[in-house]
Design a protein around this nucleic acid. Structure first.
Lengths: 226, 226
DNA sequence: GCAAAAGCAAGAGCACTGCTCTCGTTGTGG
DNA sequence: CCACAACGAGAGCAGTGCTCTTGCTTTTGC
């Protein structure tokens, strides 16, 4: 620590502040974030920002990781607050939606179209999987406790692929459950993106929460949760 | 026509060529399309392009409308080629996916995150609704012919809202069917976007078509198609 | 303790962007 | 035939990401 620790701490604070300012800019300007504007807001030269982030993409990557962790946190907290399987599932999915509604631009950053020429680095794949892993875990736990309704198993190449993934992350869950969980997750993303990106305009304007709830209950039903 | 007709035709051809070049650029550069680069490719000054499109956003809007119509065409053609209700549904949804895989950047343009500061003009809402209206029509036709399995009706604000929409576009369809069709459409979008935007990486890599088929058959089942 | 090394901020500069304005040219309708 | 509208080109403005150089400060090695 000592003197060098001071510098490291200052550096960390600066990094955080840049991210905070950038996040604020994200709210108004969306994905085309201007590094120069961020620098102006911080009262420093634009070139100075490059001491902390090697490029604009790297700044975006940092924001993406933070966003993934934020949704993940929200979903996990909501799931932990519930007891029944269905309630845990609905709590998690609604928490994701609530977070997306509160942070639409960050949602767009992680689940919208990828920035052209931007390849997601290794650092993002961990945080990115938290929500789907949470859903899979909820389903798996319910299954292992014998509380998931019977359904006929699935076959096909994707079933085997998902089965292999399940062995690693949610051992004990049969392919059909993993497929159903994954399917629910994709439906979840589609429903939220559609709501945020304006596709529901002029069809469901008042009771969007109800419509989302209807869809997620449908997914829970397909999974076999009760 | 005569002389003025010539000029009008040349103008139309120019407009089309600009769109074609822009579309080509979309493939490589994605959504951050450069008007100047398009102009360069056409061997004209960048300012000349503004004779045909008042702004970059207007060019994008034209591309968006074309894209909506392209998916709409593909889906309608596929549905028309099938006879059974389920086959029509699966044909349409697979056609949408096939089109998206063939034109990923155009898919991102219409179903990805909206361009910041870009508000979809009135001209886009018509073409934008073609796919969902097609799905709703398939379901409605099957229902009116008495071929849709019974399900318990739905209630709630969103059901009334969707019921009102149905009266206008697909008269005769009960709210629960419209809701199910809409839900399927959102699931469809989520599944395709996830596949295109890389969310399936390292989980379903080989049999993505099979996984999509599984999901859409699940939706058809929820609707009650046979 | 002090010099060398590394970290840092600032400014200038490059190549690019969307967009506007002006200025000749060229085709068109009366 | 001629006034007028459409057109293409060029210059220019404000903005962008990013690099390089120049001083200054802090940390580190001896």
């Amino acid at each position: 620590m000592s003197a060098s620790g001071v510098r490291a701490r200052v550096r960390a604070e600066m990094t955080e502040e840049i991210k905070a300012v950038a996040k604020r800019h994200l709210v108004t300007d969306g994905a085309n974030l201007s590094l120069r504007a961020v620098a102006r807001d911080m009262g420093m030269a634009s070139s100075a920002v490059y001491r902390y982030f090697a490029s604009r993409d790297e700044l975006l990557t940092a924001l993406i990781i933070d966003a993934y962790n934020a949704v993940g946190d929200a979903a996990e907290r909501a799931a932990a607050a519930e007891k029944g399987d269905l309630d845990r599932f609905l709590g998690a999915t609604h928490a994701v939606r609530d977070w997306a509604l509160a942070n639409p631009h960050e949602w767009a950053l992680i689940y919208g179209s990828p920035v052209p020429g931007y390849e997601a680095p290794q650092d993002t794949i961990g945080p990115a999987t938290r929500v789907i892993l949470l859903i899979a875990a909820i389903v798996r736990d319910a299954y292992l406790a014998g509380r998931v309704a019977e359904r006929e198993p699935i076959t096909g190449g994707f079933a085997e692929e998902l089965g292999r993934v399940a062995e690693q992350y949610t051992p004990g869950a049969p392919p059909r459950l993993v497929a159903a969980a994954m399917s629910s997750f994709l439906h979840l993303g589609g429903a939220i993106s559609a709501e945020l990106f304006g596709q529901l305009k002029n069809s469901v304007d008042e009771d969007r929460r109800g419509f989302f709830d209807y869809q997620m209950r449908g997914e829970a039903d397909r999974i076999g949760l009760t």
